[in-house]
Design a protein around this nucleic acid. Structure first.
Length: 295
DNA sequence: TTGCAGGGGTCAA
DNA sequence: TTGACCCCTGCA
């Protein structure tokens, strides 16, 4: 059948989507926006999202989602993989110079996943002063401890915990998930939302600055975590999360000198405008994979 | 083998 | 503006 410009067919516990372009699982899942997708020996990726576990592979315009059905594809995965967006247009918009042409060509199959904002917020609180393998371990441990068990091919996986379940956690038990000094931030944030003191529901209708300031009221959330939360949940795209890698690549390729957070932010806003978030993602992936600016 | 620096930042002084 | 911070890995 035809669905929003794609040809989709249903197979045994799987959905095949044809005519998919600008989609590369390696770029998407390894560009740093998510922590729950694992590369399999055959090159496909298995991950937990939307309360489900699926396996994703892609070859020559054909996207294959295993352990799902057409109904879930329409209601969940189409949106999650941002399949309604024309990434060729996005690339055109951000390729403003030779540097961006390089970065885009390097990460040509990147897509910004539209992830659950609650999970994204907690995951990026964990990311502070941390390394990716550790972040993945901690998010997994939290899911195993407080999430729900699901299954694919007789293997167990765990969904990211609901707000109410994580709110009931204790610092002592959370510490077993190896979140270290971030445990108090996780619990503090969860409880503020659970008790109704704060809410993630209104962020989309705020302007970007207000949304960022609002998120920064959570413990463990500063400018970087706030911007990541907004961008990787698909809430705001005119943000430019600036971590050490982005700072390095901006200094080395654009500024040709040392600079600060504020200067990079205003440059990105001015230069990339509403596409800043996409530009950041191409740049980050390019910088990290090529160790640009690494000592 | 042991020791130490440092990491996708944030907080507090 | 500057150091401390959980925990783990990489590298002397």
């Amino acid at each position: 059948m035809e669905y929003k410009g794609y040809k989709i067919t249903e197979g045994k516990n799987r959905v095949i989507v044809e005519n998919v372009i600008d989609f590369n699982p390696v770029h998407i899942f390894e560009c740093g926006q998510c922590f729950r997708w694992l590369r399999q020996p055959d090159g496909s990726y298995t991950g937990v999202a939307k309360g489900r576990v699926i396996n994703v592979s892609y070859n020559n315009g054909k996207l294959e989602l295993y352990n799902t059905n057409i109904e879930d594809f329409k209601s969940l995965w189409f949106d999650y993989f941002d399949l309604g967006r024309d990434y060729s247009l996005v690339k055109e918009k951000v390729m403003r110079d030779e540097i961006m042409k390089q970065a885009v060509s390097f990460g040509s199959g990147i897509r910004l996943l539209r992830q659950d904002i609650w999970e994204t917020l907690i995951s990026f609180i964990i990311s502070a002063n941390n390394r990716i393998p550790m972040i993945m371990k901690t998010v997994n441990a939290i899911s195993e401890t407080y999430g729900r068990e699901i299954e694919m091919d007789n293997k167990k996986y765990y969904t990211f915990p609901k707000l109410s379940d994580l709110s009931r956690a204790t610092i002592e038990k959370l510490e077993l998930c190896r979140a270290g000094f971030r445990c108090k931030y996780i619990l503090g944030t969860a409880r503020m939302i659970n008790e109704g003191e704060m809410s993630l529901d209104g962020l989309a209708s705020m302007n970007t600055k207000d949304a960022r300031d609002y998120l920064k009221r959570f413990p463990g959330v500063g400018p970087k975590v706030a911007d990541c939360t907004l961008l990787y949940s698909g809430t705001k795209y005119d943000v430019f999360p600036t971590d050490v890698w982005v700072k390095r690549v901006m200094e080395e390729l654009y500024f040709k000198r040392e600079t600060g957070f504020a200067e990079i932010q205003s440059f990105a806003r001015e230069y990339f405008g509403e596409y800043a978030g996409f530009a950041q993602q191409y740049l980050f992936y390019y910088a990290r994979e090529n160790k640009i600016g690494a000592n």
